[in-house]
Design a protein around this nucleic acid. Structure first.
Lengths: 232, 232
DNA sequence: TGTTTGCGTTTGATATATCAGATTTCAAAT
DNA sequence: ATTTGAAATCTGATATATCAAACGCAAACA
């Protein structure tokens, strides 16, 4: 055993399965509204246009079905199931789970993790002044990651990931507002305080309110841009 | 149209897909501990022993994977991923989602729904005295259903369903305790009060505490019976 | 004219075959 | 004795074939 530690394992990204690839494609199409709710997805036709067989496609459908983005009627077909109401519920689900994670984090956080949160918050303040939105997005994610890590809840974290419906572009759009950037950092600081002081109830409440408030902002933006498309 | 109404639609249970059947089979095996965490599931072998082809089986694996009960390593195989820690996290997830549902219910509940909750609670009190545990389980479910209905959150309800890891037997076991039966009814009454008074925060908090408390009870029972098996 | 029945087409469900990555084995080399 | 590496083998990923249910449309009938 000599110097194994210097060799990082190669990211196995490039051998991602067809299934997961087409899953991502369809998922994005649904969430972005390219596939309307109620629309029927023809297995063979879609497989044909994607240049793959039906086997990986129907596996992708099972994942989407488990996530609640499509509904499968036996011997009938699979139908898209996603509308603004469900988008809001997914946001609420994210709030519920993320706040439960925050609660657990407040019980288990280490001193080292508290320091890391504080450091990130200071960086956020800086990013606020330099109006570096990209950096702010990155810091936000790292901040939440520290909390996830502190919670020790791998399953909840995974479940939470399934409820995110907004892509990078949408985040950029929301954080383009000065007021929103300011609010986000304020709320993150409040959450960090609650966790650092080991107050589970408070941490949960603040995290929930934060996710719901910023989530509503997203939803409003999306519905507005949908309206614009409709007028066109 | 002549007398169609007297003909109830046949329960389409028997034409349930193979996929969903084997999904249920494997899921139960994992949750009940018959399949240990880390165990590898061989596609062909399992398909063979079940007397089916690999196609519906691998679809079932995708659902289980989306639920976080198995993990798939490309070109390697699929491995069971379920241990006591995850069981506890699933219970916490249930608490998080169910309490969010209660919160929404407190905002939207109708007078008629409040009356139905009250009626169920009265029946529970009766079931408490006659020690009709089966009836109590039934009433519990109907009570929660009213709340789900009041919340109007179809997606959250669905997501919640995926976090239930205990079967009828387990529920029976827990409610065999006099004290547990009493506590459950007390908590349900408190939850109903909060919802009837349209207090979202209170309803959420009470529902969360209820799910976590009774969930911990379940977890303890399970770990104890696991210990017994280990000694055998 | 409205309803029903029948058959051909479509399409999802399932089975089987093929491909390619991963593991194992075991002998040759050091 | 240990290492290496190539072939055999295992196994999941993907493609293709087959089966049967559901749909649609038109002919038959009332």
């Amino acid at each position: 055993m000599e110097r194994d530690d210097v060799l990082l394992p190669v990211e196995p990204v490039f051998l991602k399965s067809l299934r997961s690839h087409v899953y991502g494609l369809v998922r994005d199409a649904i969430l972005s509204g390219k596939l309307k709710s109620g629309e029927k997805l023809n297995e063979r036709q879609l497989a044909g246009s994607l240049g793959i067989s039906t086997t990986p496609l129907k596996e992708a459908f099972r994942i989407l079905e488990a996530e609640g983005l499509v509904r499968s009627e036996p011997r009938r077909g699979i139908y898209v199931t996603f509308d603004p109401a469900q988008a809001e519920e997914m946001m609420l689900a994210r709030a519920a789970i993320e706040s439960m994670i925050a609660r657990q984090a407040a019980k288990r956080v280490s001193e080292e993790q508290i320091l890391r949160m504080r450091a990130l918050l200071i960086e956020m303040r800086t990013g606020l002044e330099t109006v570096d939105v990209l950096e702010l997005i990155n810091l936000n994610e790292r901040f939440h990651n520290v909390i996830h890590e502190a919670s020790g809840c791998a399953y909840l974290r995974r479940l939470q990931g399934g409820q995110s419906i907004y892509n990078h572009t949408a985040r950029l759009s929301v954080l383009s507002e000065e007021r929103e950037r300011f609010l986000a950092v304020e709320e993150h600081e409040a959450i960090a305080d609650a966790i650092a002081e080991r107050k589970p109830d408070l941490a949960e409440q603040r995290m929930r309110d934060h996710v719901i408030r910023s989530g509503e902002k997203h939803l409003i933006r999306v519905s507005q841009s949908e309206d614009q498309k409709d007028r066109a």
